[in-house]
């Protein structure tokens, strides 16, 4: 499966307008404008420390923008009150950089907790659902392990399984491939594509793993540290060849790139 099979973009699901992110007076990124369509696999990319995770934290409402708005559909996410925001965030599944599993719960319990809170399913059914989510990330049989008993990469995969617990409409993954071996990383790409195709989830990924970016993404934003704003938006496979911004081409070609963009064939 490749990104090229993906149907053309439909209506925008998430829209950022003139988004400026700052820690007090320190501006991380200014004037970001981008759209994420339904069923997009959207990559937030850029060099280390440029504010990729910060952008994700803004999108899920953990941090307030200094300026600008974030729209979900037609609704202004930045202006919603906390109660309404709860209804919004239940549509999200989030995997944090280090997994962030609750260490006093087993893997199955980690996945079961949000399901127990949000549905009235029987214990057996919840257990089956947790086992299924774990097997999707290749962790079947590890239901009764605690996060401290498994490796870092396994923690990360279990974090993805927990993010998928409630079949979210939008899945946010912060550095899902980091710390995974190439085979697991490839399986993860496949998982993301299958989830998008079968469940219709929109996926937003923070990453700088080029292989993954080019294999699965159909849309992206490049955060440029030098100018503190977006370097480019669009399909990374095309940006790689045709972007007018040399920083973007360098990034997507691991630093090896002719100085001028090739002409877009007509």
């Amino acid at each position: 499966m490749t990104a090229q099979q993906h149907p053309p973009a439909t209506k925008p699901m998430i829209t950022a307008r003139d988004l400026t992110m700052a820690y007090d007076s320190f501006v991380v990124m200014r004037d970001l404008n981008f759209e994420i369509a339904e069923k997009d696999i959207f990559i937030i990319m850029g060099s280390s420390g440029c504010g990729k995770s910060t952008l994700m934290r803004h999108l899920i409402g953990l941090q307030e923008p200094a300026k600008g708005t974030i729209l979900y559909g037609d609704k202004d996410f930045t202006a919603t009150d906390p109660a309404e925001r709860g209804a919004f965030t239940r549509r999200f599944g989030v995997m944090y950089q280090s997994g962030a599993l609750w260490s006093s719960l087993t893997l199955a319990e980690n996945i079961a907790l949000p399901i127990e809170e949000n549905t009235r399913m029987t214990h057996k059914a919840i257990r089956d659902l947790a086992s299924y989510k774990l097997s999707l990330v290749g962790l079947s049989g590890y239901e009764d392990y605690y996060p401290s008993q498994i490796s870092g990469g396994m923690n990360k995969r279990a974090g993805i399984a927990r993010a998928m617990a409630l079949d979210p409409e939008i899945l946010f993954l912060d550095e899902p491939g980091a710390g995974l071996d190439p085979l697991s990383s490839r399986r993860l790409d496949e998982l993301i594509l299958r989830l998008r195709d079968s469940l219709g989830s929109t996926v937003v990924i923070v990453t700088h793993e080029l292989a993954s970016i080019l294999a699965i993404a159909n849309n992206s934003i490049f955060l440029d540290t030098a100018t503190r704003t977006q370097g480019a938006t669009g399909n990374p496979s095309e940006l790689r060849k045709h972007s007018e911004n040399p920083a973007v081409r360098l990034f997507l070609n691991r630093g090896e790139q002719p100085e001028t963009p090739t002409e877009i064939p007509t």
């Binding site: 999707l136 962790l139 079947s140 049989g141 590890y142 009764d144 399986r187 998982l191 299958r194 079968s198």
Partner: peptide, 21 residues
Amino acid sequence: AGLIGLLELALAVPEEIDANK
């Protein structure tokens, strides 16, 4: 077909035999 895809993915890695607990 969609269901088969998900199940294949879930079955791709065999279940860990719980020996070291």
